[in-house]
Simulated scan of single mutants.
Amino acid sequence: MNEQASRLKVLNRKVPPTMKALVSYGKDDYRFEPEYPTPECGPDDIIIKTEACGVCAGDLKCQHGAAMFWGDETQPQWVKPPFIPGHEFLGTIVEVGENVTGFILGDRVTADQIVPCQECRFCKSGQYWMCQPHNIFGFQQENNGGMAEYVRYPKTSLVHKVPNEMDLESALLIEPYACSKHAVDRALIGCEDIVVISGAGPLGLGMITYARMKNPKKLVVLDLIDNRLEKAKEFGADIVLNPRETDVIQAILDMTDGYGCDIYIEATGHPSSVTQGLSMIRKLGRFVEFSVFGAPTTVDWSIIGDRKELDILGAHLSPYCYPFVIDNISNGNLKTNGVVTRCFPIEQWEEAFEYASGKYGDLKVAITF
């Protein structure tokens, strides 16, 4: 592009040169920037005007310096500051590059959290969610996230249209529910299985409403907060238990003739939930680990091998899940009512992060624009 054409493109832009954004310059160094540069639209890019962005537990752990993001003596730093956080976002297309097809100005869209490179062995085999470079919206400066007025979707983004009639509170759950679906799919739930889901936060609730569609023999949900257990019951749990009030390991053993549950899905990110699950799962059971942890977990690995011969399965991101989730939120099969409990403008991001911690009883908190 010659200099005159470049100047003309800038003059014809429909988005302002600067925007409001939350920017991470380092762990515990997050700043609201009222005039941060707006992303440029390349020939293969899409620019959206952000509608809203959910605050994820991963965002909180990153802000507080968790080693999986910032590195430690055993793992390298993964984040690339300065970056704009946020991966649970959606918006309306305001610019499209000349090479973009299938999308037009005004489309309401969201995208998979990961931006696959399409060149590594994982991408070439269709396992794009494990892309080796692993660039994800909201953690690297090349792929800034949704806690800003405008976001760029680069060429290899996996973009999905969102129905205009879907209410914002439901649309904000597309990304977390897609992750929930992948975790439940990993569990291979059958109709004779007794399933325990540990954690009834937003992602746990997504697992519950989707697991209900699998029609297990019994769906048991554990959480320390009673109002979350009430919501779990509303979303399809058969039995809800509070580990503060009940010996949940013994309760599961009692309802299974001493064998233990068939499937345990860990969705709390707390070490005690891992050891609890290993104690209540039966021999030859399936344990699905979903959470992001803020600290290491120590377990007796002989339980996994010599004692029970368990299948231990990880669950990462949301491969091939967005179309199903969008359709089933739209038709009401996946329940969303009451999960988004509070929204804040970007200027009040500190309050949003504080409420997203759950200390005031909130489930999903979002930043709106």
Rank of each mutant, 00 (worst) to 15 (best):
P319C: 04
N333T: 14
Q276H: 07
G338W: 08
E309K: 12
L313E: 05
Q276F: 04
M280N: 04
S330K: 15
V292F: 11
N337L: 07
D300F: 07
F293R: 04
N331A: 08
I312W: 13
V248Q: 05
D254E: 14
L219Y: 04
I281T: 08
L219D: 00
C261A: 15
H270Q: 15
D257K: 15
T256W: 11
I239N: 05
R282F: 06
G305S: 15
C321E: 11
A251Y: 02
L219W: 01
K283M: 13
Y320Q: 12
V274K: 02
I239F: 06
I303D: 01
S272N: 12
Q250R: 15
I252F: 10
E230T: 15
Q276W: 02
G269Q: 01
N242S: 09
R286V: 11
D311I: 00
L229P: 03
E234L: 10
I225H: 05
L310E: 09
S302E: 09
G285S: 12
E245P: 04
S272F: 05
T297I: 12
M255Q: 14
P296H: 03
K308L: 13
D327V: 06
R286M: 01
W301N: 13
D306E: 10
I304H: 08
I225C: 01
P296L: 08
Q250W: 03
A237C: 07
L310R: 06
N328M: 12
T256L: 08
L284C: 10
A251V: 00
D257W: 11
D300G: 00
V299R: 11
R228L: 10
G314T: 14
S272K: 15
V299A: 10
A267R: 00
A232I: 03
F290N: 00
G314P: 01
H316M: 12
S272Y: 04
K335E: 08
Y322E: 05
D257F: 11
S279T: 02
H270P: 00
R286N: 11
T298S: 12
L310Y: 05
N328V: 09
L224H: 02
K308T: 09
G332C: 07
H270L: 14
T246M: 11
D238C: 07
N331T: 11
N242Q: 09
P296G: 05
V221H: 00
R286T: 15
D327C: 06
I225W: 05
K231D: 03
F290R: 03
S272D: 14
P296E: 11
N227W: 03
P271Y: 06
N333Y: 07
A237V: 06
P323G: 09
G258V: 10
D306S: 09
V325K: 04
I303W: 00
S273I: 03
V240I: 15
K233R: 15
P296I: 07
A232N: 01
D238G: 06
